[in-house]
């Protein structure tokens, strides 16, 4: 059963499952503690500064693969002792992000920023700032309340930046939390855009003073046990599944409701009687097939006709076949008439005008009456009229009787 349809097979709003987007993906680290002579220090006890221990960097032990492994071990990525480091995660496609969470092996940074890209890493925009000193580090006020006019803007918060716990601390960001329109997310294009990303970057901008940590400067590194990113494929409410593409590639929306495109962001060919819309819980906004009476497989959408019809139908059939014409292929082409013994969808609409008795191949679309030459009669102009008789001339087939 596909959740995109109810028990009566009526279309309904649907979403792919929330999934762990970082799981199994490679995170690119700008700096990694990857061998001698580097060394880093950490704390065994989250509350006891005296539990400090130090160890040398090893080639494979601290790589960024450890950020997204899920083997249950607390394996950590460690940066080189430095003031700045970044972690970048490519999601492969546009996703809707519900949370980003980092579990630290080191003390949490004094200042950390999360950025997102919507164009596969070409440009980046701030997603969230965390800092004990928002003004000084990011030139932003510490924010506790997000008003509607800024719900598509990154804010800086002071929470989650405390020195303790010294290990195991969490930094979590939920892009919708505290945003006024979050309860009506499905009706808020601004927030739908706000949570959309193709790539994420975490920038560790400043650590707490090494002196406070009881370390020398060259011993202080960022250490992260886990990077979790919760989200789902952006399918605009038209897919409940988003399986991995061929060869385990980029996930693809399994588009329903007669939609198509990487994000179910357009209507399938021939389903253009109404404009495409994102689904909402109130209305699935299913794409509707054009009505071409089975005489065409192609159509286009006209907003003008859609508005004129009271927003009911805007499809215009293209390339009507079987000698039909009109917006819905509902008329016969010139020279052809409908055989009313067959339904309008029948392919059997053929011209019945007599090749000699009629002046041409044109007939009345409603009655089927062909235009007859002088002295010729009948629906198809196939007989001489009263007082006329057949001649030998194909040009004047009936002549007045003498």
């Amino acid at each position: 059963h596909d959740p995109c349809y109810n028990a009566n097979q009526h279309p309904q709003f649907c979403l792919p499952d929330l999934s762990e987007l970082a799981s199994g993906r490679l995170v690119e680290a700008s700096s990694t503690c990857s061998g001698p002579p580097g060394r880093f220090c950490a704390f065994q006890d989250s509350a006891n500064p005296g539990s400090k221990f130090c160890q040398g960097c090893q080639e494979h032990t601290h790589r960024s693969e450890h950020l997204t492994d899920s083997d249950g071990d607390t394996t950590c990525w460690w940066s080189k002792p430095t003031a700045n480091a970044t972690l970048t995660l490519a999601l492969g496609r546009r996703m809707e992000i519900l949370y980003v969470a980092l579990r630290f092996c080191s003390p949490r940074p004094e200042s950390l920023a999360i950025y997102k890209s919507m164009d596969y890493g070409r440009s980046w925009m701030p997603f969230q700032f965390f800092s004990s000193r928002c003004w000084r580090r990011y030139h932003l006020p510490p924010t506790t309340t997000i008003v509607k006019s800024m719900e598509h803007e990154a804010v800086c918060i002071e929470a989650q930046t405390a020195l303790k716990p010294l290990t195991g601390g969490l930094v979590a960001f939920m892009p919708l939390a505290g945003r006024p329109s979050a309860q009506r997310f499905e009706y808020s294009p601004i927030l739908q855009d706000w949570v959309t990303a193709t790539d994420l970057r975490v920038s560790f901008d400043r650590m707490h003073s090494a002196r406070i940590l009881g370390m020398r400067r060259k011993e202080a590194s960022y250490g992260v046990a886990e990077l979790q990113v919760g989200g789902r494929c952006k399918c605009n409410g038209h897919a409940s599944r988003c399986p991995a593409g061929k060869d385990g590639g980029v996930p693809q929306c399994d588009c329903q409701h007669n939609t198509a495109g990487p994000e179910c962001d357009t209507c399938k060919t021939f389903y253009w009687d109404r404009p495409w819309q994102r689904a909402t819980p109130k209305d699935a906004h299913e794409c509707v097939a054009c009505n071409c009476h089975r005489h065409s497989h192609r159509c286009r959408f006209s907003m003008e006709l859609f508005e004129l019809s009271g927003r009911q139908s805007g499809g215009i059939c293209l390339n009507c076949r079987h000698h039909t014409a009109g917006r819905h292929c509902q008329y016969c082409s010139p020279g052809f008439k409908r055989d009313f013994s067959h339904p309008i969808t029948s392919h059997r609409v053929s011209c019945q005008c007599h090749p000699i008795g009629a002046t041409g191949a044109f007939c009345n679309q409603t009655t089927g009456q062909c235009q007859c030459k002088n002295g010729v009669t009948g629906l198809t102009c196939n007989r001489c009229a009263q007082g006329f008789q057949q001649s030998r001339s194909a040009h004047i087939p009936c002549i007045r009787k003498l």
């Binding site: 000699i356 196939n382 007989r383 009263q386 030998r392 194909a394 040009h395 009936c398």
Partner: peptide, 23 residues
Amino acid sequence: DVMPTLDMALFDWTDYEDLRPDM
């Protein structure tokens, strides 16, 4: 009275070959 259908065989097609249907 129903008049008879035009008899294509009666026509002289000499000058109207292009009009002549396949019979």
